[in-house]
Amino acid sequence: MTTSTAAATRTTAPLGRLLGAELRWVLRRPRTLVVLGLLGLVPLAIAIGIATTGGPSAGRGPGLVAQVAGNGFVLPVVALGLSLALLLPLAVASAGADAIAGEAATGTLRGLLLAPVGRLRLVVMKSAGVVTVAVLAVLVVAVVGMVAGTVVVGGAQGTLVTLSGTTLGVGEALGRIGLVAVWTVGQLLAVGAVALAISTLTEHPLVVLACVLGGLIVFGVLSAIPSLDWLQPVLLTTGFSAGTDVLRDPMPLDGLGSSTVRALVYVVLGLAVTAWRMRRRDA
């Protein structure tokens, strides 16, 4: 037998092996791969759109997308900002939905609890899967955005022109892109934690997806109603536009900071509900 003395007495498998199995499972799930592929198309589509409509003179017009023209380093930032509206939350919510509700639907949650993977360890393992998807999704958008921005759009003499009219060198531009990527992961973790929490309450992954995306849309509507101003600090979507701040010079940190704090509170809440529910959930 392959059992060792540790294996003969321990009551749960080593965490590293659990995490490895979870990551392999997440990355082999066709849904994950499809969403990641779609995300890669976002910066590509912007780049091709900018390249075919013309050079910097096409930069006139509304929206941040116009900023990309002749300013390739802006592409990853703009693509992340656009994807954060729907596609990135979709990727993370789908991972959260499959993590627990999906496992319950296929009957595999039972197997995990019987193995047994401890109920709290299960939350750790599932969170790791969602974090992986969030990081990969952001990486795909940022890296494809950088490549497309450099190759298809071309830089402004190798620099990034900020919204404030200053120019940043390559090093600082990459730093800014890295910062917005990390910040975006933070926002997505908030979405993922909420998705996990909802995932513990149902056996239907689509319910999770509908709740999370519907919730984001409702948040968007609520934040557009002036008389509900007082809700703004509570809504996760309030901070979603702060990513644009990395294109300003000097970079204002309050928007990025407060939205990160808000996202952290969502993460803590989501994980609390998840752990609390998983502790007693039937499977």
Binding site: T2, T3, S4, A7, R10, A13, L18, G20, A21, A115
Partner: peptide, 14 residues
Amino acid sequence: LLRAAATEPRLDGD
């Protein structure tokens, strides 16, 4: 089964 085996506390190694 490999995924299930990864969660089994009594298994070790390969």
